[in-house]
Design a protein around this nucleic acid. Structure first.
Length: 304
RNA sequence: GCAGGGUUAGUGAAGCGGUCAAACACAACAGACUGUAAAUCUGUCGGCUUUAGCCUUCGUAGGUUCGAAUCCUACACCCUGCA
């Protein structure tokens, strides 16, 4: 298992004064609770960088912090769109930047928390996202094969995406004329905290969380998707909803089995998230919240 | 007890004499990722070595054949029909 807690780098002068805290990590790692603890301690306000909690009405299945759980700390990034609406990393970036400015204006510390790597990086590394999605062009290109799309890219002389077998990326390359590499250095004053309790602990937490979701009423949310929004809605792609679909539609009555599937999907998600974050050397990794609190109070207390 | 069907790699499931270490799916493992990102995609996936190759696998034990996961015999376990 990864153990980087003994070797996290000492903060350099370039990181002070800290003007933004980011908390990243896999799903169910305890980011939200940690964020609240830190917000209380350092006069913070929280921006959730989570591609699921942006949806209104999908609260339980997305593990969106409830009003009660928010403990009076202002939260942003939640309930931004309806489940059937589409939302992009660029949209999030705009929203987050706006909130960061507002929070600083109030003299508070912006704390950005989440597991959506692209959302986080878009903000922290000032991506200049390419043009907006062209739905008409996309549906047109969707009909072409991978090879045809590749040929098309070569013909026009665009750069081929590294994932040259990924249709979605090929279409995007054609749409925006190549590959986007607009990454800036880490936003000045930002400190990124990574929290990774390990896969075994994560599995445990995910199990418990799924159970709580059922007790909390995810089935109602899933029914809402089934009856109102439709399973094609962007909001319906959350793990728990996907596995609940056969149960809601009546093709299985085995709820336990659905929860097993949820665990599988969540574990895979956690690994993907980890593989995104692990390559980022700017992240200071920890196993659990108390280590983070200790680290920050010893290294940063005076500088925030 | 008689008749018929089945037993394949972690799971499900193709294969029914050679081109089979064995399709495919799932799981697992590794990785990519710049306006769908809880999305999407890539690689590996019996063992050893690694362009190639060698070894051990297709319920168990024998047999037929130049050659068997594939055919035959016996045994074990599972399912179905008749008793």
């Amino acid at each position: 298992m990864i153990n980087t807690t003994n070797s996290h780098p000492t903060l350099t002068s370039k990181l002070e004064p800290t003007t933004l805290l980011a908390i990243v990590g896999p799903t169910a790692s305890g980011k939200s609770a940690l964020a609240i603890a830190l917000a209380k301690k350092y006069r913070g306000e929280i921006i959730c960088a989570d591609s699921r909690t942006i949806y209104k009405g999908l609260d339980i299945g997305t593990a969106k912090p409830s009003l009660l759980e928010q403990e009076g700390i202002p939260h942003y990034g939640l309930d931004l769109v309806e489940p059937y609406e589409s939302y992009s990393a660029a949209d999030f970036q705009a929203h987050a930047n706006e909130k960061i400015a507002e929070i600083r204006e109030r003299g508070n510390l912006p704390i950005i928390v989440g597991g959506s790597g692209l959302y986080i990086d878009g903000v922290l590394y000032s991506y200049e996202f390419g043009g907006q999605a062209d739905e008409i062009l996309r549906t047109e290109l969707e009909a072409l094969s991978i090879v045809e799309l590749q040929e098309r890219i070569e013909e026009v002389g665009y750069e081929m995406p590294e994932n040259s077998q990924n249709k979605r990326y090929l279409i995007r390359a054609i749409e925006q004329g190549g590959v986007n590499r607009s990454r800036q250095p880490l936003m000045s004053g930002a400190v990124i905290i990574g929290i990774n309790p390990g896969l075994e602990a994560l599995e445990d937490r995910i199990r418990r969380r799924s159970k709580n979701m059922v007790d909390g009423g995810v089935l109602e949310e899933a029914r809402l998707i089934d009856e109102d929004y439709g399973w094609d809605s962007p909001g319906a792609s959350g793990n728990i909803y996907r596995v609940l679909r056969p149960y809601i539609e009546g093709s299985t009555y085995d709820l336990e089995k659905c929860l097993e599937d949820a665990l599988t999907l969540d574990k895979k998600l956690a690994k993907r998230q980890l593989s995104w974050f692990m390559r980022n050397d700017d992240i200071h990794w920890f196993d659990n919240s108390s280590e983070v609190l200790a680290f920050l109070s010893s290294q940063l207390a005076n500088k925030i």
